[in-house]
Design a protein around this nucleic acid. Structure first.
Length: 294
DNA sequence: CACTTGACCTGTCCGC
DNA sequence: TGCGGACAGGTCAAGT
């Protein structure tokens, strides 16, 4: 899925389009993607006005005037597509957000078989598409959002102004015997880091992803903290990594140093980047800069 | 308990 | 062209 920078990009894009819009209708199937009851949806979603967009970790929050919020997790292939209704459509009004989608070329012919939920906003529609069906949308009272299981377990936001290198180190060290990549991917340790930014951060800090947390020096953990923040910030600035998330944006992936760069030269030392497997995930490293632990 | 691996789904790509 | 298997930016349950 979209990781923290991608979801932040979705939020920033939709923030310009959704607030003030009224939800006049909803089309969905009650399934794992959207577990709420029809009664709840009719009562707290239909008729409500969108008030604000927020993000926590990789979750997008759409706050409604009904005091409920839509929580959206895009997981691997989730995507939000905003399309002005026919007749009111102006050039460039189709905006797609989130992971790449095989039907991008069919934009304007939604819904399609990957569409799980359609919000009718009167003069526009917002589609939640998710090919692999891992993603979800939940309608939850805004006051209870932070106390649902998923949100409760999340670690701190890595870019929060009060999140320090000391906090970062202390939290990683709660899993001393796990490898550092798995620990970075653990959302209860730090929220929002996924496979791309774990690989990029570890490369920047010259740490092999298989290294046990307890074997990474304090100095290296401090460097990792700084580099991860830098990589997340740069990606947000570039509009995230999703190659097709919304037209003309999402250029971070072209700034990636190792992610999906196997068989190319390490920009630091020239050694060929390799792809391997760590923590059950495809993992990209420079075998010279990132020495494997003994 | 700490940590790792498989499953969840659908689609694509790659080798035979 | 067809088929099997591996893989995909995430998270949870089940396994060791």
């Amino acid at each position: 899925m979209p990781e923290l920078p991608e979801v932040e990009t979705v939020k920033l894009g939709l923030q310009k389009l959704l607030p003030g819009a009224q939800v006049v209708g909803v089309t969905f199937d009650i399934d794992k993607s959207f577990p709420n009851t029809l009664a709840d949806v009719e009562r707290f979603l239909v008729g409500a006005t969108i008030v604000a967009l927020k993000r926590r970790a990789k979750v997008l929050l759409i706050e409604l005037s009904s005091k409920y919020s839509l929580l959206i997790h895009l997981k691997m292939t989730g995507q939000l597509v905003y399309i002005k209704s026919r007749g009111q459509r102006a050039e460039g009004k189709e905006k797609r957000f989130g992971a790449g989608h095989p039907n991008d070329s069919l934009i304007g012919r939604l819904p399609d078989k990957s569409t799980r939920v359609t919000l009718d906003l009167g003069d526009a529609k917002l589609y939640f598409n998710d090919q692999r069906k891992f993603g979800w949308i939940k309608l939850i009272p805004t006051a209870e959002v932070s106390s649902i299981d998923f949100m409760k377990k999340l670690g701190p936001e890595p870019l929060a102004s009060d999140f320090s290198a000391e906090d970062f180190r202390a939290r990683l060290l709660r899993r001393p015997n796990a490898n550092i990549k798995a620990t970075l991917l653990d959302q209860t340790v730090v929220a929002g880091i996924g496979n791309i930014y774990a690989d990029e951060g570890l490369w920047a800090a010259k740490i092999h992803p298989s290294t046990l947390v307890k074997n990474v020096s304090k100095a290296k953990l401090d460097i990792l903290f700084r580099e991860l923040q830098a990589v997340l910030r740069l990606s947000i600035e570039k509009g995230g990594s999703s190659d097709r998330n919304y037209t003309g944006k999402g250029s971070y992936i072209s700034f990636a140093k190792v992610f999906r760069k196997e068989n190319t030269a390490c920009p630091r030392c020239g050694t060929t980047i390799i792809k391997t497997r760590v923590a059950g995930r495809g993992t990209h490293i420079c075998p010279y800069c990132q020495k494997a632990p003994k």
